[in-house]
């Protein structure tokens, strides 16, 4: 990301291939920012998602804005945001007139059945890849299991899960000190 244009183009590319919302963007971000450009560490990328989840607005936009700001300040935040929203903006504007036809096209539906499988596989692989960096001890493993149960069984909102996990970790730290 040597320039604002580069930053914009990177997020445009990511926006074009993000199917299925904010978390589907994670494998793309990891590939571009952690592997290729070494701009972020795995841990920082995970931290960005915790912030993106708990702040107003769309997670994908929040994460893009944060990365842009970190690299180039306010101008970077705007360039990254415009980059990530430009592909859907263009595509929906172009498709608006033919939306019905597009959706009921057989080949579109075949292609997206394939893409959904791919996104599920990409996410499975990234959980495996990030596991060691993010779950470092038994407390972490317990928080992971508790979060899954609260999400899957209790239907608790993701926002509360992030806040609760942070409070538990802080509480444990203070307990250890005293």
């Amino acid at each position: 990301m040597s320039s604002l244009v580069d930053l914009f183009l990177m997020f445009f590319k990511i926006g074009l291939f993000t199917f299925g919302g904010g978390y589907a963007m994670l494998p793309l971000l990891k590939d571009e920012l952690v592997r290729k450009r070494r701009f972020l560490e795995d841990e920082e990328l995970i931290d960005l998602y915790s912030i993106g989840q708990c702040t107003p607005g769309i997670i994908a936009v929040n994460v893009a804005t944060f990365i842009g700001y970190k690299r180039f300040g306010v101008a970077g935040a705007i360039a990254a945001t415009v980059g990530i929203i430009m592909p859907p903006l263009l595509i929906i504007t172009l498709l608006a007139a033919v939306l019905e036809k597009y959706m009921h096209n057989r080949y579109v539906s075949y292609a997206f059945a394939g893409i959904r499988i791919c996104v599920a596989a990409l996410i499975a692989d990234i959980v495996y890849g990030l596991w060691k960096k993010s779950v470092t001890n038994y407390t972490g493993a317990a928080i992971f299991v508790a979060a899954l149960i609260l999400l899957g069984i209790c239907n608790l909102s993701a926002v509360w899960i992030v806040i609760l996990a942070g409070m538990v970790a802080l509480g444990l730290k203070e307990l250890k000190k005293s």
Binding site: G20, I46, Y49, Q53, V119, L130, G140, G166
Partner: peptide, 29 residues
């Protein structure tokens, strides 16, 4: 303190990522 909070949130975010993947997988597979 901030570092402690973030290290507690990371495993929770992993659960969120896995859960998002499971929901997509349920539609896909």
């Amino acid at each position: 303190r901030v570092q402690a909070v973030m290290s507690g949130i990371r495993p929770a975010v992993m659960a969120l990522i896995l859960f998002a993947g499971l929901q997509i997988a349920r539609l896909a597979i």
